[in-house]
Design a protein around this nucleic acid. Structure first.
Length: 568
RNA sequence: UGCCGGAUGGUGUAAUGGUAGCACAACAGACUCUGGAUCUGUUUGUCCAGGUUCAAGUCCUGGUCCGGCAACCA
């Protein structure tokens, strides 16, 4: 159970808002979530959404969804749809407040004209190379453009020509007139508008000029009456420019920009560029590949929105760059899935078991709890017969210490179905490989207690060989072998070759007809989710996450200690 | 060598001058028809050096280290 922990849901941004409200600076809270439609949303965006939508909801305000679509080169309608789908899935709602920066084109253009008239902006004729040269470097001031003092009327005329499409891309830009010697690079007469004739996914060829982020964002915020404009810390150095524009122009309001540290997650990448690269190079199957931290990928993998939101709550909000442990995300996931998933039995790596004393042709069913954590989930019946499959890992001919599953002469419990004792191990005479086990069977006692005097320490999952449904399972592991792949010289060099294993499985027939997205716990194995690739005759299950596996830990510890012993 | 941020256990975070707390991870135990879940316990921390103060993670000074900033991207 996740105990409510108020200490982690309180943070400095909430405090700022509380104080603003208390001081009467605002009557309500208006935030915005401003994705650029040039890629899919990932769990880092989830943190931002939890902040913006969450804070607005907590204070009874509203959160706008605004597409920051001011760059026609990279943006596409596909992304607009995917982004909305993902936000809704995560559980957030923008109501009527869906906006596009591109809808503000005319107003933004008028603001730009205003800026020129105020003598605070000018059209600059410098080429890109010259521009770079004049800008200087952080440690040394830049030089003023020779066009800086171009007459206002000339700038006005040129800017209008730019807008009418009469000028070539790169020929001119509109620049703010601030301070070429500023230690803040963003104040060195930043570009406000550039010419770009690429058709825009929404406005087509109506606009041959596009505002830069710094110009469009603060004004869009102001136009929408945003009170708190929350963004990530790389925009901290942009804040003086955000404020400059809103101070110089006559605008509806002046929102407060507040920065927080973006989310980084161990063993994965969050950069849109790198994600795009994995998708383009077909390293993964698409933006919704279940190994990706995209919301579409996590959804397909079987993550719940609740688990993601709880994770975001628990990592907190600060201005410190950090790398959050993916184990916390996984913990939140297991915690949620444990409470809600129906249990079912499935065998991934089958070992045939023949019950010597169980009549051939006889069948019966045993009642099994759908979810021991939730009595209201009810029960189901699982078919049982003479030939079963158990997990190959659950038998060892020469059991190591602490292995208390099945072994020759040993008795174990079958989940909900009684007990078996291993009598004989049948091997392939040619290879020596274990073919099947012959066991004696003892039906279950009323409460499942072990037979008097026996030392039954394990309970195994099983399926009836004739009744089991064959399915494909996709076993996922982390995509990368390094904690912070983005730090590597070549992030693709640390891809985990075993991040996906496709394995066929035998599943109890109760899952027949399960719809894509349905989640189950395969007892003792992990949580699985029906993939959209499923067909009527062949379901496909994605392994969302394994169960905690104490035995695996013991084994690993044993391996390490034998390794040490052989070394010394 | 410029400017802006930041630094609390392995990780993430809290403590708003007054007992350094929580979660994850790790480890140990209890319980259990999932070696699951649950419960209990243990280990581990204020970047450094000075100063102010009865008292400093918190305030001051100096340093160290880390992140960001030099797209006509966002």
């Amino acid at each position: 159970m996740i105990a409510p922990d108020d200490s982690t849901s309180r943070h400095f941004i909430r405090e700022i808002i509380e104080n603003d409200l208390k001081a009467g600076k605002h009557k309500t809270v208006v935030t915005r979530f401003p994705p650029e439609p040039n890629g899919y949303l990932h769990i880092g965006h989830a943190k931002s959404m939890c902040l913006n939508f969450g804070l607005a909801a907590d204070f009874g305000g509203r959160c706008h969804l605004r597409f920051d679509d001011t760059n026609p080169e990279t943006e596409e309608t596909e992304y607009i749809e995917a982004i909305q789908r993902d936000i809704r899935w995560l559980g957030f709602d923008w109501g009527q407040h869906l906006y596009y920066a591109s809808d503000y084109s005319e107003r933004l253009y008028q603001y730009a004209l205003e800026l020129i008239k105020l003598g605070k902006a000018y059209v600059c004729t410098l080429s890109t190379e010259e521009f770079k040269d004049y800008r200087g470097v952080p440690t040394r001031p830049g030089k003023e453009s020779p066009w800086r003092n171009r007459p206002i009327t000339e700038s006005l005329e040129l800017f209008q020509r730019m807008r009418e499409g009469k000028e070539a891309e790169g020929a001119y830009v509109l620049r703010a007139k601030i301070d070429m010697a500023s230690p803040n690079m963003h104040l060195r007469d930043p570009v406000l508008y550039r010419i770009n004739k690429t058709p825009h996914h929404r406005t087509g060829t109506t606009w041959p000029i596009y505002p830069m982020y710094d110009f469009a964002h603060c004004l869009s915020d102001s136009i929408e009456g945003i009170t708190h404009s929350i963004c990530t810390i790389e925009f901290e150095v942009h804040r003086p420019l955000y404020d400059w524009i809103l101070d110089v122009l006559k605008v509806p309001c002046h929102p407060q920009q507040i920065e927080f540290a973006r989310l980084n997650l161990s063993y994965t990448i969050m950069s849109k560029r790198l994600l795009q690269e994995l998708v383009n190079s077909k390293v993964v199957a698409g933006w919704d590949d279940p190994r990706l931290p995209t919301l579409a990928g996590l959804r397909r993998r079987g993550y719940t929105p609740e688990a993601i939101r709880e994770f975001c709550r628990r990592v907190g909000v600060t201005k410190v760059n950090s790398l959050s442990d993916v184990a916390l995300l996984e913990h939140c996931l297991r915690d949620d899935l444990n409470k809600r998933s129906h249990r079912v039995m499935a065998v991934l790596n089958p070992l045939r078991v023949v019950l010597e004393n169980y009549p051939d042709g006889r069948e019966e069913t045993f009642e099994a709890l759908n979810n021991p954590e939730d009595p209201s989930a009810g029960a189901r019946r699982v078919p049982f017969a003479r030939v079963l499959f158990i997990e190959r890992d659950d038998f060892q001919e020469n059991p190591p210490p602490k292995f208390f599953r099945l072994a020759p002469g040993r008795t174990v419990r079958l989940r909900y179905a009684g007990f078996i004792t291993c009598q004989r191990v049948i091997k392939d005479p040619a290879t020596g490989a274990i073919k099947e086990l012959h066991c004696s069977y003892q039906p279950p006692a009323p409460k499942g207690q072990a037979p008097e005097g026996s030392k039954v320490k394990a309970t195994l999952h099983w399926v009836s060989a004739t009744h089991a449904l064959q399915a494909e399972t996709r076993l996922y592991d982390r995509l990368f072998t390094k904690e912070n792949p983005a730090d590597e010289a070549d992030f693709k060099a640390c891809l985990n070759p075993a991040s996906l294993q496709t394995v066929s499985a035998w599943i109890e027939p109760n899952v027949r007809g399960a719809q894509p997205g349905s989640r189950y716990q395969f007892e003792r194995l992990g949580y699985f989710c029906v993939d959209p690739d499923s067909t009527d005759d062949k379901p496909v299950f994605n392994r969302t996450i394994t169960l905690q596996d104490t035995w695996a830990k013991i084994q690993q510890a044993q391996r390490i200690s034998t390794c040490k012993m052989s070394k010394s």
